[in-house]
């Protein structure tokens, strides 16, 4: 069994895991970071999106061993050390961009990623960029508004 080491939310971690361990299992079961969700388990819903070396990926479709040495950020790593929410988290709250909340961790991680590539996105861009994240409650409308608010807040 391989030993995998990586930096998760700024902390160095290392564990011996089965070869077949998925990154999402490693985060949830080995590290107890249950903010990253498993929704569809078939790479479609995006509830498991995390950031690996600066890129949003689906943690259910990646082996923990593939991220050896990587810098990983999960939803738990977004807020500041003093607990102040990331502007995207705050914008989701302010705009009621969630109902049941199951998709929210992945949605927020994908939204943060999309602003890196599109700092001032229009509605169409936001909807296209969030194609890999499914929400069955909101109809996406308030999610789009939240991303636009966060874009403005982060541009300041």
């Amino acid at each position: 069994m391989p030993t995998v080491s990586m930096t998760v939310n700024g902390k160095s971690v290392g564990k011996t895991v089965e070869d077949r361990t998925l990154l999402v299992q490693f985060l949830r079961q080995d590290l107890g970071l249950t903010g990253t969700h498993v929704g569809c388990d078939t790479s479609q819903c995006g509830a498991c999106v995390v950031d690996v070396n600066g890129h949003a990926v689906k943690a259910c479709t990646l082996l923990a061993a593939q991220t050896e040495g990587a810098r990983v950020t999960t939803i738990e790593g977004l807020a500041a050390a003093d607990g102040a929410l990331h502007p995207m988290q705050q914008a989701f709250m302010d705009n009621h961009a969630l109902q049941c909340g199951f998709c929210t961790p992945g949605m927020v991680m994908s939204a943060v990623d999309l602003l890196k590539r599109h700092p001032n996105p229009d509605e169409q861009t936001i909807r296209r960029e969030l194609e890999g994240n499914l929400c069955r409650c909101t109809g996406y409308h308030n999610i789009v508004k939240a991303v636009q608010q966060a874009a403005k807040a982060m541009a300041r």
Binding site: S43, H55, V57, K58, T61, L62, S110, D113
Partner: peptide, 9 residues
């Protein structure tokens, strides 16, 4: 292809 996360891998 796929979605942004799939395209990143």
């Amino acid at each position: 292809i796929g979605d942004p996360q799939v395209r990143n891998m």
